[in-house]
Measured scan of single mutants.
Amino acid sequence: MAASAHGSVWGPLRLGIPGLCCRRPPLGLYARMRRLPGPEVSGRSVAAASGPGAWGTDHYCLELLRKRDYEGYLCSLLLPAESRSSVFALRAFNVELAQVKDSVSEKTIGLMRMQFWKKTVEDIYCDNPPHQPVAIELWKAVKRHNLTKRWLMKIVDEREKNLDDKAYRNIKELENYAENTQSSLLYLTLEILGIKDLHADHAASHIGKAQGIVTCLRATPYHGSRRKVFLPMDICMLHGVSQEDFLRRNQDKNVRDVIYDIASQAHLHLKHARSFHKTVPVKAFPAFLQTVSLEDFLKKIQRVDFDIFHPSLQQKNTLLPLYLYIQSWRKTY
């Protein structure tokens, strides 16, 4: 089996927390979720979201995140109150960019949308954001926290390059993509939290790379249903696996070995980020709550012996909000 052949990389499970039942964490995340308004986002309300009498641009960002990046939404709820709305805006910006690729039928249209967001970032730093909910909220975040323009532009530029429907040539190319998107998002989150620390940035770099790799793995069944495969070609070739094997949902050992190798790289990034947690300011830990969902996925895929098409991998963990709150309460990542 794939797991038994390579099992030495995987460390002990961390979500089991001995003695936790003896201490009762304060009510927090679930209460916040219940208090949030929840009407559906419609095209009509989106168009009017920044106008008078609408929910408001902040509510639009929150709803977009809740629907399109639920794990990011849950993590954002546990940030300090003064930072929450800015991170909602930042993550909503990322969602807007991420959904361009799947929402257009022609690359030219995707490039036009990316050009809109490039100009939007430029206009935000000229205090002239367009009348668009996410743009307005992002402008507020930039003004409030003096966010670095370079990180925002890196996210747009990398998403634009990724409009080509090509597999990553190697794991390094996937890591570079993750660094310029997910890690950049974390650098900006640290700025919102008021953290300027080399060790925190180092952790953000590795956690962002782990996030990018896990996202690529999780999306494999969806991409396969659209006749697309984006997994690193070098690892596929190493194990003699073709793109057609993934399109046919082949579950042979060599296919699972490909998934094992890729998942192991995410695991190593996560492990390395945690190896120097004592040197990272505690104030930075809330920015890294996504490690909970990353670890949850890596454990699940290990349990199914790296069968990327196993139905259990597509099921939401209903206990994730609780695990996130516990992680926040324990002040760790």
Rank of each mutant, 00 (worst) to 15 (best):
K143E: 04
K140E: 05
K228F: 13
D296G: 06
R159H: 05
T220Y: 03
N250C: 12
F246K: 02
A287D: 02
S85N: 11
S293G: 14
I259V: 14
V95S: 14
A141V: 08
Y73R: 01
M114G: 04
E96Y: 05
A54E: 07
I207N: 01
I213R: 00
P311G: 12
H239R: 11
R274M: 04
A273K: 02
T189Q: 14
Q314H: 09
A219E: 04
D102E: 14
L319T: 10
K119R: 11
V87R: 00
A200M: 01
T215D: 08
A263N: 01
S225Y: 15
E71K: 02
T279A: 11
A141Y: 00
D58S: 12
L319S: 10
R68F: 14
L319W: 12
G51W: 09
Q99Y: 13
L185V: 10
R169T: 12
G240W: 03
R113Q: 11
T148P: 10
Q290P: 09
S76Q: 03
H199S: 07
G56R: 15
D197Y: 02
M112W: 13
Q115G: 14
K316R: 09
R66V: 06
Y125R: 01
K283C: 12
E179V: 02
F246I: 15
S225K: 11
T181Y: 04
I192A: 14
S205M: 05
L190I: 04
F288P: 01
R226K: 14
R227I: 07
A287H: 01
A167G: 15
L190M: 13
I259F: 03
A287K: 00
R256H: 07
S312H: 09
A47N: 07
V304E: 05
P130V: 13
L198N: 04
K172A: 14
A273Y: 01
M112Q: 14
L90S: 02
T148S: 09
K67Y: 11
K101S: 15
R249G: 13
Y70N: 09
I259M: 05
F230E: 11
Q315W: 11
P80W: 02
E122Y: 08
S86T: 05
E71V: 10
I213K: 00
S184L: 15
D102C: 10
R303I: 09
S184G: 12
G51S: 14
S264C: 13
S183C: 10
I326W: 13
L247H: 04
D197A: 08
K107A: 14
Q132E: 13
R274Y: 04
L62R: 09
L97K: 00
L313D: 00
P133D: 06
K67Q: 10
Y187A: 02
L322K: 01
K172I: 15
D123A: 11
S225W: 15
E173V: 04
H223I: 07
L270W: 01
T120Q: 08
L79R: 02
V100P: 05
V292F: 09
L294M: 15
V229I: 15
V304S: 09
L152Q: 01
Q132I: 11
S205C: 09
L62N: 07
E295L: 08
D307Q: 06
S312N: 10
H145F: 15
H239A: 05
A284C: 10
L77G: 03
E173Q: 10
V258T: 11
A219P: 01
C75S: 10
P321L: 05
A200S: 11
L324T: 08
R218M: 11
T318Y: 14
I136N: 08
D164Y: 15
S45A: 08
V214T: 12
D69A: 01
I155G: 01
E179P: 01
H131L: 13
R303N: 10
R150M: 12
S85M: 11
R248P: 03
R218L: 08
D245F: 06
F230C: 11
Q314N: 10
R303A: 12
Y168L: 08
R226D: 09
M114T: 14
K196W: 04
D164F: 13
P281G: 04
K253R: 12
C61W: 06
L289P: 00
K67I: 11
A135V: 04
E160R: 05
L62V: 14
I109M: 10
L74W: 03
T181D: 00
T318P: 12
D197S: 14
R226S: 09
A92G: 08
R226L: 12
N162Y: 12
L193N: 02
M114Y: 11
A210D: 02
D127A: 07
H59M: 09
L238N: 14
K299Y: 10
E106T: 09
E191V: 00
L324P: 00
N94I: 03
I171L: 15
V282D: 13
D201I: 04
N250M: 12
H267P: 04
P232E: 00
Y70D: 03
Q115E: 15
S242F: 03
P321Q: 03
E106V: 09
F288C: 01
E137P: 04
L270S: 03
R256F: 03
L231T: 00
D257M: 09
P321E: 00
D261C: 05
P232C: 01
G56E: 15
A98H: 06
D305R: 07
D157H: 11
R84Y: 05
N146V: 07
E106Q: 10
Y168V: 14
L322T: 08
R248C: 06
N94Y: 06
H310N: 07
I171N: 04
Y125A: 04
G208E: 01
R274C: 02
Y260A: 07
W55D: 15
R274S: 03
K154E: 06
V46H: 10
Q251K: 15
A178M: 00
H267Q: 06
T57H: 13
A203L: 03
L298M: 07
R144D: 05
K278R: 09
R226V: 13
S205K: 04
R274E: 03
L324F: 10
A284G: 08
F306G: 04
I195P: 02
S85V: 13
K119Y: 04
G194Q: 07
I109E: 05
D257L: 09
L238S: 14
K172N: 13
L97H: 01
I195K: 00
F230M: 14
L198V: 08
D307H: 05
S45N: 09
K118R: 10
H277G: 15
L97A: 10
V46Q: 05
F297C: 05
K331D: 09
T332C: 13
R218A: 07
S264E: 06
E175S: 04
G208P: 01
M153C: 13
L186D: 02
G240N: 14
V104M: 14
F88I: 14
S205G: 08
I192L: 11
K143V: 11
K271V: 15
K278H: 09
I109L: 10
K196G: 07
F288E: 01
F306V: 00
L186G: 04
H272P: 01
S50N: 08
K278W: 09
I213M: 10
L90C: 09
S225Q: 14
